[in-house]
Design a protein around this nucleic acid. Structure first.
Length: 340
DNA sequence: TAACCGTGGTG
DNA sequence: TCACCAAGGTT
């Protein structure tokens, strides 16, 4: 009898698995749920290369969930700065508290699903990888591999239901965690979005899209809307080797992060509020930054007078600006000022 | 359902 | 250069 897709893929995984910091070390049977959880959250919509240094920094500073739960939220947000999608960091704080409170992670997909920041993908992935549950793990890699294996012609996101059914059908009862990671490794290194390496693929004999001749065509996707360009201002207020930083509101764009004061720009409108003080402003230039659904042209204005800014904030030493944890947009603005 | 939410790499 | 893309979740 011919080997099944899962058997073939698991054999491939046994010799080709990527060596990643959050995977179980040789000789240790199961990976640490804390490290699986942390890595899975960091990896949401984020590349392995981007995650690695953050995962290393987090696990060095906070080696287990109780130490993370005990850390000040500000420290965690600052440590997340630059990784993006900051609601993940806010939910990480909530989730760590909940897990510490109940004395450990839930060990089922259903239980994990109730934790903040864990959706269908992440709950299934942790259940399968950390706890050995047979869970159907569907991420963008799995969607791509499955759409090609079964030549699913319906475009995403409409095809999600059919893809899930097909993924369920090939998920094995044993080693579901390895199978999920094998599918993701295959998608990341072989069955790539562009220019798939079909000559190296262990599943090439089973692949309907390969047989049809043009696997890179799948999965089909609806065309994306083009993003508007917004204008905004950020204010650099400097006194005696310090700069005035504020904390952004807990929800919305860059929520909860330290930032330069701005004029109220957001995803729906240009900025228009008045400056945080009525002094003399000099232009330091323009920062262009692309967010997911809009682009921003941020004009950076500088004041070195003596007037006190309005509202809440803190004077932050310029020689420790790295530790403030500014999101990339404001780090760019700071770089612009400090280079001029 | 679809909008919202970051960033850096890539072809 | 720029549109697309990456181990998605929340509302």
């Amino acid at each position: 009898m011919a080997a099944t897709v899962s058997e073939t893929l698991l054999d491939w995984y046994d010799t080709h698995a990527r060596d990643l910091p959050w995977r179980a070390r040789p000789g240790t049977p199961a990976p640490d749920p804390y490290r699986v959880w942390l890595s899975e959250v960091m990896l949401q919509q984020t590349t392995v290369a981007a995650v690695k240094p953050y995962f290393e920094a987090f696990t060095t500073r906070w080696p287990d969930v109780s130490s993370l739960a005990a850390a000040p939220e500000e420290d965690i947000m600052a440590a997340w700065a630059g990784l993006g999608y900051y609601s993940r960091a806010r939910n990480l704080v909530k989730c760590a508290a909940a897990v510490a409170q109940r004395g450990g992670f839930p060990e089922t997909e259903e239980g994990l699903r109730d934790l903040p920041g864990l959706g269908p993908y992440t709950a299934a992935a942790i259940a399968a990888i950390a706890f050995g549950e047979r869970a159907v793990v569907v991420d963008a890699n799995v969607e791509r591999v499955v759409a090609r294996l079964f030549a699913i012609e319906d475009p995403l996101p409409g095809a999600r239901k059919a893809i899930r059914v097909a993924a369920d059908a090939i998920t094995p009862d044993r080693r579901a965690g390895d199978f999920a990671q094998a599918m993701m490794d295959l998608g990341a290194t072989i069955c790539t979005s562009r220019d798939p390496k079909c000559l190296l693929c262990p599943l090439t004999q089973s692949c309907e899209a390969r047989a049809a001749g043009d696997p890179a065509r799948l999965p089909l996707k609806a065309r994306k809307k083009d993003k508007p360009v917004r204008q905004g201002r950020a204010y650099w207020i400097e006194r005696n080797g310090t700069v005035w930083l504020v904390r952004r509101a807990g929800k919305g764009m860059l929520g909860g992060m330290r930032a330069l004061p701005d004029d109220g720009w957001n995803s729906r409108s240009d900025g228009s509020d008045e400056a945080p003080l009525a002094g003399i402003w000099e232009s330091a230039g323009l920062v262009r930054h692309a967010f997911t659904h809009f682009a921003l042209e941020l004009s950076v204005l500088v004041n070195r007078g003596s007037e006190q800014p309005k509202g809440e904030g803190e004077w932050w030493p310029l020689d420790r600006l790295e530790e403030a944890g500014l999101p990339t947009l404001f780090a760019k603005a700071a770089r612009l000022v400090l280079a001029s």
